[in-house]
Design a binder for these strands. Structure first.
Length: 111
DNA sequence: CCGCTGACCCTAG
DNA sequence: ACTAGGGCCAGCG
């Protein structure tokens, strides 16, 4: 854990954590930001994913906001894709929001 | 070089 | 219970 490559961009650390999100689980930007040491920089998490949006190796669809809403769906190939991917993984929805009480998990548990 | 924007979250009135 | 504002870090014009 220590001796981590601090030289690595924050953006890469986010991707590493997001890639560790297991199947059928969802986390929030805030949890990821806290895991990286950034308490209130959840915005940067979105920025990092934005750069990685083109990378299909990263399940960015499993990352939602505190409200359980799919904020970044617009940045996907198609806005419907995010919902389809989550439903495909067994994630349930509450209207247009993800059922957090059933699938929300702290990003720290993936570390 | 300086300033703005951004897939957010929290505290206060 | 709701609305408004501030804060945070990094990339880009």
């Amino acid at each position: 854990m220590e001796k981590q490559k601090d030289k690595k961009d924050f953006f890469l650390r986010v991707l590493e954590l997001v890639k560790k999100i297991p199947y059928g689980y969802v986390t929030t930007y805030g949890s990821i930001a806290q895991c990286l040491g950034l308490k209130s920089s959840a915005r940067m998490v979105g920025w990092a994913l934005n750069s990685a949006a083109a990378d299909y190796s990263i399940p960015c669809h499993r990352v939602v906001n505190r409200n359980g809403e799919l904020t970044g769906k617009q940045y996907f190939a198609t806005p419907e894709m995010m919902r389809e991917l989550l439903e495909s993984e067994g994630i349930t929805f509450k209207g247009d929001q993800v059922n957090m009480q059933s699938h929300f998990t702290d990003a720290a548990l993936f570390l």
